[in-house]
Computed example of a mutant assay.
Amino acid sequence: MAWLHISAPDRGVTPSARSWCQCGRDLFAAGQTRALALIADHEQHRTVCPLLASSEGKAADERPDHIRRTDRRRRAA
C-alpha cells in the first residue's frame, strides 16, 4: 500500500506533499515545484515498487535494474 498526502493551503502558504509506502519509502517535499516533483515520483514509484507490483499483479521483472540491486542489498542486511 502506498499513500500520498498533499497539503495545498490558501495563498501565501507553502504547499507540501508526503509519500509513504509499505516498502519503507517515506519522503517529504515543501514548495510547489518540489511537491509537484514528489507527486510525479510517487506515481512512478507505484509502478516499480516490488511490494506494490506483486500485490497489484504487475510483474516484478518490470522494475529497473537499480531497484532490483537495492532489493538484494536489503535482503542481505
Score class of each variant (00 low, 15 high):
residue 26 D to P: 01
residue 41 D to H: 09
residue 4 L to A: 00
residue 57 G to F: 04
residue 7 S to I: 09
residue 42 H to M: 04
residue 77 A to I: 10
residue 19 S to H: 14
residue 52 L to G: 14
residue 65 D to G: 08
residue 54 S to I: 15
residue 34 R to N: 10
residue 74 R to H: 13
residue 60 A to K: 10
residue 28 F to Y: 14
residue 36 L to D: 07
residue 51 L to F: 09
residue 30 A to K: 14
residue 9 P to W: 02
residue 52 L to M: 12
residue 9 P to R: 02
residue 8 A to G: 01
residue 45 H to I: 03
residue 61 D to C: 00
residue 1 M to H: 15
residue 73 R to W: 11
residue 5 H to R: 12
residue 53 A to T: 07
residue 32 Q to V: 00
residue 63 R to I: 02
residue 12 G to V: 02
residue 28 F to K: 13
residue 56 E to Y: 08
residue 43 E to P: 03
residue 29 A to T: 08
residue 38 L to E: 01
residue 51 L to A: 05
residue 35 A to V: 05
residue 15 P to I: 00
residue 11 R to Q: 02
residue 68 R to I: 02
residue 8 A to W: 02
residue 31 G to S: 04
residue 33 T to R: 13
residue 11 R to P: 01
residue 43 E to K: 10
residue 57 G to L: 01
residue 3 W to E: 12
residue 65 D to A: 12
residue 68 R to H: 05
residue 26 D to R: 10
residue 19 S to W: 13
residue 22 Q to A: 15
residue 69 R to E: 15
residue 45 H to Q: 03
residue 31 G to D: 00
residue 42 H to N: 06
residue 45 H to W: 14
residue 1 M to P: 14
residue 3 W to K: 08
residue 35 A to W: 09
residue 50 P to Y: 08
residue 62 E to N: 12
residue 27 L to K: 09
residue 76 A to E: 14
residue 44 Q to P: 05
residue 7 S to L: 10
residue 17 A to F: 02
residue 29 A to Y: 07
residue 49 C to N: 05
residue 42 H to L: 03
residue 72 R to N: 07
residue 2 A to H: 15
residue 38 L to I: 06
residue 21 C to N: 03
residue 54 S to M: 14
residue 39 I to Y: 09
residue 31 G to L: 01
residue 1 M to T: 14
residue 48 V to R: 14
residue 19 S to N: 04
residue 11 R to M: 03
residue 14 T to S: 08
residue 73 R to E: 11
residue 11 R to V: 01
residue 48 V to P: 00
residue 61 D to T: 13
residue 70 T to D: 11
residue 4 L to H: 04
residue 2 A to K: 13
residue 24 G to A: 11
residue 3 W to G: 04
residue 52 L to T: 10
residue 12 G to M: 06
residue 76 A to N: 08
residue 71 D to T: 09
residue 16 S to A: 13
residue 25 R to E: 08
residue 55 S to T: 11
residue 35 A to Q: 07
residue 42 H to T: 15
residue 45 H to F: 08
residue 75 R to C: 01
residue 66 H to V: 04
residue 30 A to Q: 13
residue 32 Q to N: 04
residue 18 R to Q: 11
residue 39 I to N: 04
residue 13 V to K: 09
residue 39 I to S: 05
residue 66 H to T: 01
residue 75 R to I: 07
residue 36 L to W: 02
residue 38 L to M: 05
residue 24 G to D: 08
residue 44 Q to N: 07
residue 68 R to T: 07
residue 28 F to D: 06
residue 50 P to K: 06
residue 17 A to V: 02
residue 23 C to L: 07
residue 2 A to R: 14
residue 22 Q to S: 15
residue 72 R to D: 06
residue 32 Q to R: 10
residue 13 V to C: 02
residue 55 S to K: 13
residue 32 Q to P: 01
residue 12 G to P: 00
residue 44 Q to A: 07
residue 76 A to K: 15
residue 49 C to M: 04
residue 19 S to R: 08
residue 22 Q to W: 13
residue 25 R to L: 15
residue 45 H to E: 04
residue 9 P to G: 01
residue 26 D to K: 08
residue 24 G to T: 11
residue 71 D to W: 12
residue 33 T to S: 11
residue 65 D to W: 15
residue 33 T to K: 13
residue 34 R to I: 00
residue 25 R to T: 15
residue 34 R to P: 01
residue 56 E to F: 12
residue 54 S to V: 15
residue 7 S to Q: 09
residue 68 R to N: 04
residue 38 L to W: 05
residue 6 I to F: 07
residue 46 R to H: 11
